[in-house]
Write a protein that binds this DNA or RNA. Structure first.
Length: 494
RNA sequence: GGCGUCUUGGCCGAGUGGCUAGGCAGAGGUCUGCAAAACCUUCUACAGCGGUUCGAAUCCGCUAGACGCCUCCA
């Protein structure tokens, strides 16, 4: 019996605006699509938050025993920045600035993205398709939409006819907009637009001579429109109707709304059962953004090289910080909050490590099974990682009590406690115990510090406190903390 | 202007009709040669006003402030 048959998972669906009991289309298997990065610059922490939130979803679904096909695309084909002729493709623009081939830009930032995700210990998706690798599929979808009567061609470009679509289906289901309002609120200068209505969006755009990235199509040498790639790739790998589609809140409109319209125009069915949207990571109270420069990069965080940071923070601590907030809440990024998270993270890891040295007795003073279920309950409630972490701290407190001999545990419960801690800390949250990464250098350090500890203890027994305190204080300055305990002195790295 | 979200103790951040969230900081304690670290205990809340209710931080209304989308954006 798989875990998912015992655990009831509820997921907040942006479409219905309620938490729904999760029930995949194919029992035991989940199809999930997440909008990936546009690779024209380094991903910032805001981008990372979304991908790490979905990594958590991916990991928990797997933990429950689901077979998950997780598709996350790479947007490597330029999209228009504006509708009109002034439109500028960010990838091309970047290529001009950096004097690179567009695909060189794409490659550079794709590599950066993968390296960053690796540092965060995020699992790679099952399939990571690229937009440029699916031009044929996108052209086929455009043809299909035209034949269904929901798109029109004009001067080599093809536009989606939103008004026509709205008559037969409803446009705006996801974002809660209706077409009337959208039209009455449009202040767009409708000079020489090829579109019938300002709400229409491009499915295929004819390339201007200076536009380097273009592909042949029945309509023109050009490139696919903004929203097409996700429809093409999600339906190709997950089918016309799949379980979960995710992305940042800022993609809800128009991107995801347009995806729904495209898919429904083609297949006459709603493409996605559950839409999940992650909230923004803010900096100085404002959304992080590539274009405004209000952002912080993972590299700056890991090195501490940034004006707002007092020190460097490890990827695991950064992730722990983000998971202490729920994925649907706005989270403000700040040095103080990171510092607080780091201390908590160290405390949690310390107690996990001490599980190896716990002695057992016949009875336990803590209901481990009940606690274990409360961890699942937290995650079952729309992936509530802050509650999960609070539960882990409850266990942490109990473990500390065990260490002090104030609490007791049976051998079976100890095994269950250890397994559950491991499952959630490492498998679900995907955290890393940084101190366990000791390599040969670490062993050399240990030898040296142990020698100093011995010399210090000799000085102490001779009541030569000047020497002993000098060793202690200078080691602390070097970032080595000595911990005097009942069973001797240990050390930890700050 | 339209649509939507948010406002929780010194800070971060869950919860959402009656039951301690949690972390960090502060205070007290244990340990120590003194400390540090660690551990234990513990104080301070639900933006303002009005309403519904036996009971609201939680539901409704108004006010104030903040944010997001409406244009590429996770």
């Amino acid at each position: 019996m798989s875990l998912f048959e015992q655990q009831e998972l509820y997921v907040y669906n942006s479409l219905s605006k309620t938490k729904e009991k999760f029930s995949p289309i194919h029992p035991g298997a989940v199809g999930m699509y997440v909008c990936g990065p546009t690779v024209y610059s380094n991903v910032h922490m805001g981008n990372c938050r979304t991908f790490l939130s979905f990594d958590l979803v991916f990991r928990y679904l797997k933990q429950l025993g689901y077979k998950v096909r997780y598709v996350r695309n790479i947007t490597d084909a330029g999209h228009l920045e504006n509708d009109g002729e002034s439109g500028d493709d960010p990838i091309l623009k970047k290529a001009r600035i950096e004097k690179l081939e567009p695909m060189e830009v794409v490659q550079k930032y794709t590599v950066d993205f993968h390296e960053t995700m690796g540092k965060f210990n995020a699992l790679p998706p099952s399939i990571e398709p690229t937009a440029t690798g699916h031009i044929i599929e996108q052209i086929q979808i455009v043809e299909r939409i035209i034949s269904e009567g929901y798109a029109y061609e004009k001067n080599g470009s093809v536009y989606f006819d939103v008004a026509k679509f709205d008559q037969d289906h409803k446009y705006g289901k996801l974002s809660g907009r209706n077409l009337e309002d959208t039209i009455s609120n449009t202040r767009e200068l409708t000079t020489q637009s090829e579109k019938r209505n300002p709400q229409d969006f491009a499915l295929w755009k004819k390339a201007e001579p200076q536009h380097i990235m273009h592909w042949p199509s029945p309509w023109s040498d050009g490139f696919p429109g903004w929203h097409l790639e996700c429809t093409a790739m999600s339906t190709k790998y997950l089918g016309n109707n799949f379980d979960i589609h995710g992305g940042g809140m800022d993609l809800k409109f128009p991107h995801h709304e347009c995806e729904i319209a495209q898919a429904e125009a083609c297949n006459h069915e709603s493409p996605v059962n559950v839409w999940m949207h992650t909230n923004m990571l803010t900096l100085n109270g404002k959304k992080m953004s590539k274009s405004t420069g209000n952002n912080i990069l993972p590299g700056e965080l890991f090195s501490g090289e940034n004006d707002i940071l007092s020190k460097a923070f490890s990827p695991a601590v950064s992730k722990f910080f983000m998971f202490q907030a729920h994925y649907r809440s706005i989270l403000d990024f700040s040095n103080d909050a990171l510092v607080a998270s780091e201390k908590g993270y160290n405390r949690l890891m310390e107690s996990y490590r001490s599980l190896d040295n716990i002695s057992t007795s016949t009875a336990g003073s803590f209901d481990v099974s009940k606690w274990r279920q409360s961890c699942y309950d937290a995650m079952n409630d729309d992936f509530n990682s802050p509650i999960l972490i609070a539960q882990l701290f409850e266990a942490s407190k109990y473990i500390n009590g065990l260490k002090e001999g104030k609490e007791t545990i049976s051998a079976d419960d100890l095994g269950l406690l250890q397994k559950t801690m491991h499952d959630f800390i490492f498998d679900v949250l995907g955290l890393v115990d940084t101190t366990s990464e000791n390599n040969s250098d670490g062993n050399k350090l240990t030898g040296a510090v142990e020698l100093l500890i011995e010399l210090r203890n000799q000085a102490r027994s001779n009541k030569d406190f000047a020497t002993s305190d000098q060793i202690r204080d200078q080691l602390l300055e070097a970032g080595i903390q000595l911990n005097d305990g009942k069973d001797g002195t240990t050390f930890s790295l700050n």
